[in-house]
Simulated assay, not measured.
Amino acid sequence: MALSVRARWAVLLIILMIGAFGAWQLTKLPIDAVPDITNNQVQINTVDPGLSPIEIEKRVTFPIETALSGIPGLETTRSLSRNGFSQVSAIFSESTDLYFARQQVSERITQARDSLPEGTQPQIGPVTTGLGEVYMYAIDYANPNGKGAKVADGQPGWQSDGSFLTPEGDRLTDEVSRAAYLRTVQTWIISPQLRTVKGVAGVDSIGGFEKQYIVEPDPVKLSAYGVSFSELAEALEAANISVGANFLNRGAKLT
């Protein structure tokens, strides 16, 4: 006590230094109005529009839950079965590394795929929870319906006839095609770039029209050519397979 009185200026300086350090640390302290208290979990989502809730439970949800049994650190599983949709939540202990848990779940799902209905593809949810920050945005044309747009026929943009010319050279003449183009931009241009941003767990696209190619065969003409529906389906599938390049070995001529 006597030392504090004799060196009161030194004590005051130390207190000021400690206070300044505390104020500086306070500016770096992350403050969240709604702290994320969600437990350590991995979600598996599966979509099959052709199955009822009971069939989803029996043929999708239950096999996935069974396949997850025995994973190190797994405490419990919760599931939700709706019309055409299954969600299984695997709850792990707080000491389990999340990425280790996701790897184990992915391996178990791969093993369980043979017991699931054909065509179903279970997907592991992103590394986030329901309390994570969500950023919503909308995509639209700079000049909707061409109002106020600078028209240059033949150049990408709005044309004098009211259509929209894309940079790829496609002419969009109606609202459906223009909405489909916005969805294409979201899927192939904006979404891949957003996924590279640090901290983004996933990008979900809602709305618009996905571009589809529909084949409507004429049964009479198919019968005239002797082609069945299954053969047509196989031909369409074979014509849309994307494969890598290959090479051809030719033996050298020996002399």
Rank of each mutant, 00 (worst) to 15 (best):
D97H: 07
Q104G: 02
A152F: 14
S106R: 11
Q123Y: 04
F164L: 03
G130V: 07
T96R: 11
I109V: 11
G119V: 00
I91K: 05
G119Y: 00
N145F: 13
Y137L: 10
Y99I: 07
G146Q: 09
Q121T: 12
T120G: 06
D161R: 02
Q104T: 11
D170I: 01
D161Y: 00
N83C: 01
P122D: 12
S89Q: 12
N145Y: 09
P117D: 02
R113V: 13
G154R: 09
F92E: 15
A138L: 05
R178S: 09
P144R: 06
A180V: 02
M136W: 02
L131W: 11
I124D: 06
L172A: 04
Q155Y: 10
Q123N: 10
S106T: 11
I139D: 12
Y137Q: 10
V88G: 13
L165Q: 11
N143W: 15
D97V: 10
T128N: 01
Q155L: 12
G169E: 13
D170Q: 10
N143H: 15
K150D: 13
G119M: 02
S89V: 15
E175R: 11
R113K: 15
T173E: 00
P144D: 07
E168V: 01
S93C: 00
Q87R: 14
Q121S: 07
R102F: 07
G162T: 09
A90W: 09
E168H: 03
